[in-house]
């Protein structure tokens, strides 16, 4: 069965362990991972995306670049919303796709031409989500990590974002890190408590 397998993963900062002995198997499809702040969810995402090295353990099943939506939008400030999304590739078709995705997420064409500093926090969050979703489709591998993807979104725009995630990430191993227990039911995904992964080998 295809999926992401994590075995005995451990990480510590300045000799203070964040987590140890983390074991999990995430099959193709969406899983919502929840847990209190500071339990190590984001650290796990950073390890899986290759930004951090684990102190112990291994993981397998990832092919191609990991798509990682950070907790913060992390948009490039000198570029417009559209450019931030279309920057991932070349050509007019990608630009059109980016524009289509941004408007689908509720941004007007005028908003797409604005720089992140001129947009609201919720708009920037949607631009960052659009960037991740487009990368998943163009160049990204089989694994997608979304760290609080709906943070700061009102119910209406959250509905739009959930729709895009469900449709565009079909066939991927998608791990959604969230604080909101409602997200799992909105995404029709399995909800997994982070603490439940910190158990002896499965």
């Amino acid at each position: 069965m295809n999926g992401l397998k994590i075995e005995n993963l451990g990480k510590a900062y300045a000799k203070k362990p964040v987590f140890a002995g983390l074991n999990a198997f995430f099959p193709t499809g969406t899983v919502c991972l929840f847990g209190p702040s500071g339990c190590g969810k984001t650290t796990l995402a950073r390890i899986l995306s290759g930004l951090e090295k684990p102190d112990a353990g291994t993981f397998s099943g990832i092919s191609g670049p990991v798509v990682y939506l950070f907790q913060e939008p992390r948009l490039f400030p000198a570029f417009t919303a559209l450019e931030n999304v279309a920057l991932l590739g070349r050509g007019n078709s990608l630009r059109e796709k980016a524009l289509g995705l941004l408007t689908r997420l509720g941004l007007s064409e005028e908003d797409c031409q604005k720089k992140p500093s001129a947009l609201s926090g919720g708009m920037n969050q949607r631009v960052a989500l659009a960037r991740a979703l487009l990368f998943a489709e163009n160049g990204g591998g089989n694994t997608v990590l979304l760290d609080e993807p709906f943070k700061g979104l009102d119910p209406a725009t959250k509905g739009l974002a959930v729709g895009c995630v469900k449709e565009l990430l079909r066939g991927k191993i998608t791990l959604v890190i969230t604080h909101d227990g409602e997200d799992a039911s909105l995404l029709s995904a399995e909800a997994v408590a982070f603490s439940s992964l910190l158990s002896p080998a499965i």
């Binding site: 995306s49 290759g50 930004l51 670049p65 990991v66 798509v67 990682y68 950070f70 913060e72 992390r74 490039f76 400030p77 000198a78 570029f79 920057l87 991932l88 960037r131 990368f135 160049g139």
Partner: peptide, 24 residues
């Protein structure tokens, strides 16, 4: 550093990273 990480994750490449992150 956060923008540099974003550039790395989204595989921007050297030239685009210079244009998008370093130059501004």
């Amino acid at each position: 550093r956060q923008l540099l990480e974003a550039a790395k994750v989204y595989r921007l490449g050297r030239l685009k990273t210079v244009r998008a992150v370093f130059l501004p």
